[in-house]
Simulated scan of single mutants.
Amino acid sequence: MKQRLQKLIAAAGLASRRQAESWIAAGRVRVNGRVARLGEQADPSRDCIEIDGRPLPRREPPICILLNKPAGCLTTRRDPQGRPTVFDLVRDVPVRLFAVGRLDYNTEGLLLLTNDGALAHHLAHPRHEVDKTYLVRVRGRLTPQKIRQLESGVRLEDGMTAPARVRPGAQSGSHQWFEITIHEGRNRQVRRMCQAVGLPVSRLRRIRFAFLDLGDLAPGRWRKLSPQELVRLKSL
């Protein structure tokens, strides 16, 4: 069955769809010996697809890993400053993995990694409205007014956020804990939303992604999702 080349490349675990599109635009992809065009489709069972002269590899069985990301760790493959990355924690996984979205350097918690580029793209796309829940510690008090602001949407420099769901937690001295659930994935969104309502974040941990949670997984550790969990993820 014919599919767009960028989707086939992503499904093979070589790159994200966006990166695959840049490869096609740069003339690095050929179909049956001819330089491919952006938007072109091919059938991997009948067509010879090559990237930089090498055949498109057969797709590895899809896997998805749930990692408890520690703070002080980047969601990137390489860092020019030599700081640790999430991929350092999964070096013994024998396939190339992609992160589903990002957690910033100081944010902890649940991060999904997969060799299925199409799945990573699907789960990270805001159109699918996949819930992500964070445990937040802020300086200040979460008043009813601030809860209403967060639940109504907050105006940020890149536009209004979608409404969030907030569940207040314990007050600890000058700090307050609470849970917030969003389905967008903007850069540092929870931190910026809290800052916008006068609640600077002092600790941030993602505790759920859709139906998945951390369980008793220690920071820096990971587990492979079961086939049943993978099927549920693909249906979101």
Rank of each mutant, 00 (worst) to 15 (best):
R58P: 07
R59A: 12
E60T: 10
P61A: 10
P62R: 05
P62F: 12
I63D: 09
I63N: 01
C64M: 04
C64E: 00
C64S: 12
I65W: 04
K69A: 06
K69H: 07
K69R: 11
P70Y: 02
A71D: 13
A71V: 08
G72I: 08
T76A: 15
T76F: 07
R77H: 15
R78P: 00
R78F: 11
D79T: 08
D79C: 10
Q81R: 14
G82M: 05
G82Y: 11
G82W: 09
R83C: 00
R83P: 03
P84S: 02
T85H: 08
L89Q: 04
V90M: 04
R91P: 06
D92Q: 14
D92L: 07
P94F: 03
P94T: 01
V95G: 07
V95I: 01
V95W: 07
V95Q: 13
R96E: 02
R96T: 03
A99Q: 02
R102Y: 00
R102P: 03
D104P: 07
Y105L: 15
Y105G: 03
Y105D: 00
Y105I: 02
T107N: 02
E108F: 07
E108W: 06
G109A: 00
G109L: 02
G109Y: 01
L110A: 04
L112F: 00
L113S: 03
L113M: 04
T114A: 10
T114D: 06
N115V: 07
N115L: 07
N115Y: 01
D116G: 08
G117D: 01
G117E: 01
A118M: 10
L119Q: 02
L119A: 03
A120K: 09
H121F: 05
H122N: 10
H122Q: 13
L123Y: 00
A124T: 13
H125M: 06
P126W: 04
R127V: 07
H128P: 01
V130T: 03
D131A: 15
D131H: 11
T133N: 03
Y134V: 08
Y134M: 03
R137H: 09
V138N: 06
V138T: 14
R141C: 06
R141T: 14
L142I: 08
T143A: 00
P144N: 12
P144K: 12
P144W: 12
P144H: 05
K146V: 13
R148A: 13
R148H: 12
Q149M: 14
Q149R: 15
Q149I: 00
L150A: 08
S152A: 15
S152R: 14
G153C: 11
G153L: 11
V154H: 13
V154C: 06
R155V: 13
L156W: 09
L156A: 05
L156T: 05
E157D: 15
M160Q: 14
M160A: 09
T161A: 10
T161P: 02
A162L: 13
P163D: 01
A164H: 05
V166F: 11
P168V: 07
P168T: 08
G169P: 14
Q171H: 14
Q171A: 15
S174Q: 15
H175W: 15
Q176E: 12
Q176V: 00
F178Q: 12
E179C: 11
E179R: 15
E179Q: 14
E179Y: 14
I180C: 11
T181W: 09
T181P: 07
T181N: 06
T181G: 03
T181L: 02
I182G: 01
H183I: 00
G185A: 12
G185C: 08
N187Y: 14
N187S: 02
N187Q: 12
V190S: 02
V190G: 09
